[in-house]
Nucleic acid binder design. Structure first.
Lengths: 353, 353
DNA sequence: ATGCAATATTTAAACGATTAAATTTATCGT
DNA sequence: ACGATAAATTTAATCGTTTAAATATTGCAT
């Protein structure tokens, strides 16, 4: 009943525990017959070394901590999946810590404990308590958490935002470039009067995407008409409201031929508004979104959007983490990795002549 | 640089390590002034007890292992979120092990390692290697994994399927009842000619749901016409194909007035087929789905479906796990918990007179 | 004040692995 | 066959906690 330990294996195989350890880890040569004897006993007994004891001694847990802002937030699962894909090939494991930040917006208790404290506590627990070897932070990282970070001498990688701290690697997608490409796609199809529905204006992605949009306009010697810009908040309802407003303030001549929403949710909200105005997508107005969420493939017509390779982001973050852990030999790729995205052309963009 | 340990605290506070341990864990009374001195040193130094060492000594890691069939599969995240919601209030943590079963369908390597072995290996690692205190299996559990399970004397809880093993608790949603209610909703709206698009026929949910549908028919003294049943495979494309077939084999008189698909994806596929046939939902044919996936709220018209309370399933599973861990004092609820679901009425069901 | 019981504190042995250092065994040239 | 050297193996300390058991301290009745 009591779990089987290295001592049991040693006794059974007639060797010392050190020898057993050496064959398990290959850390020192062991005579072939002894080696085989040990291996036989191990497989016969189904022995699994106690990782807890091993960790205590070696000061390595082989655990990567994931600190997720909210597992329900759109990119989180995709990124975790990418991490999992890489980690599965290694000897590491995942300790998942969900900050539940969406949840905490509605939670009294959390208004007392500031979010920064929440992050710091979780980080501190992971690093000093659970002794994870590295942590991957999944989310926008737009909170100031530099307080505790300085005295952590373990790899911290940020996934889905870009780090400005030089000790912290980050893996992000190419907000600016993909916004350029998306806009270019519209322009190439003959659109000139393009409306823009932004995300929350103070957030990094919204700013980067806007920059990318402007670049495409400049390239084509066009200017982005500021009266055609509406500020949304990333949610479907705001897309609807922005589009409605755009429609109401337009005459036949000033109606945009296309609208670029900074994410799919708002794009779909815009499509709702267009349908309610008895107009058709894309015949009357083209619509494009961003993120390639599941739903963009289910609305009618199917939404043209930008696909973010979340899996690649997670995969890359995990790879960096283990490389950093590998010590000097494993060379660490780079400080801030940018994963390219691509435009997924579906059915919401009409070709203008 | 070297992390601070209980010895440092003891020295600094002028007491023994045992005393420090007693104040941290409240396991024995300590004189108020001493207690305070220790507490002060702890908060001044930001000391975090080493969980690894603690676990080795107490043989409890305070970690709940999650064994997920695939994190990308629809219910997984919702259930993990529920687990996380409960766990956050306790001293436990989550070790996430993703079996990546969807992925492995396309992976040569995994055809060699049988899925059963994969599950057993992962389980064995979690229990004997990582020494998690309990494991929650998230998925269909329709694989035979009884091999290794017998000699594990730690709580195992299955979430999202029902266990037949009496040593394994399970938490599932009420497939049968909610199918009855969904069907009843159609009947109450005057529908009699109802077509059914099933999921993979050999799976438990498909069988339970069919049972529930039949019950509603019987209640209403109707019979489910077997020529109106089509077997899908849970995917959107199969919903499309089934609906197309249904349409092609119907005359005006034999056209179903409603179709019940066993999940939202197939329901949406059916809606696609109906639209392609120049028919309208719900005016010509009503459609209902199952699962309340995100997308069901984004299609047009919005899909009437059954909402599964994934969060409650996860929450409940985590609660059972910790209760079982609590020992004799914490009474464990029940062996097989069924969480009720509810019909979400949206826009795809027409009232017939 | 004194002794005794009750309470508080410390000592030291675990937990199960790894790994220097010590020891044993094997190899090999002469 | 004999040392010397190299290779394999074992011994025992260690990682940072917890917790019985031993010890020290306190309070209290007399």
């Amino acid at each position: 009943m009591t779990p089987i330990t290295i001592k049991d294996i040693a006794r059974e195989a007639g060797v010392s525990t050190a020898t057993v350890s050496y064959v398990i880890n290959g850390s020192k040569p062991v005579m072939p017959e002894k080696r085989q004897r040990v291996l036989d006993v191990i497989s016969k007994t189904n022995y699994q070394p106690n990782r807890v004891a091993k960790s205590l001694r070696t000061k390595k847990t082989n655990i990567i901590g994931i600190l997720a802002e909210d597992i329900l937030e759109f990119p989180t699962v995709g990124i975790i999946n990418g991490i999992s894909e890489y980690i599965e090939k290694t000897d590491y494991n995942i300790l998942l810590n969900d900050l539940r930040m969406l949840d905490s917006l509605f939670n009294q208790y959390d208004q007392i404990i500031h979010q920064k404290d929440k992050i710091n506590n979780a980080l501190s627990f992971l690093v000093f308590g659970a002794k994870v070897d590295a942590v991957i932070y999944v989310g926008m990282f737009n909170r100031d958490i530099t307080g505790i970070l300085s005295n952590i001498n373990k790899p911290i990688i940020v996934a889905y935002s870009t780090s400005s701290d030089e000790h912290i690697c980050s893996v992000n997608h190419d907000n600016e470039n993909s916004a350029t490409e998306l806009t270019r796609h519209l322009i190439e199809n003959g659109h000139k009067r393009i409306a823009v529905i932004t995300g929350l204006a103070h957030t990094a992605p919204a700013q980067m995407r806007l920059k990318g949009i402007n670049r495409a306009f400049k390239e084509a010697n066009l200017v982005l008409d500021s009266t055609m810009i509406r500020n949304g908040d990333w949610e479907r309802a705001s897309g609807y409201a922005c589009m409605k407003d755009l429609l109401e303030h337009s005459t036949r001549d000033t109606l945009p031929t296309a609208v670029l929403a900074m994410n799919d949710l708002m794009a779909i909200g815009a499509m709702d508004a267009i349908r309610d105005a008895k107009l058709k997508v894309p015949e009357d107005i083209s619509v494009v979104g961003f993120d390639n969420r599941n739903v963009s493939n289910f609305v009618f017509p199917k939404l043209t959007t930008v696909e973010i390779d979340l899996e690649a982001i997670g995969y890359s973050a995990a790879k960096i983490a283990t490389q950093k852990l590998g010590g000097a030999e494993g060379h660490v790729d780079s400080q801030n990795i940018i994963i390219p995205s691509k435009v997924i052309m579906r059915d919401t963009v009409a070709r203008l002549k």
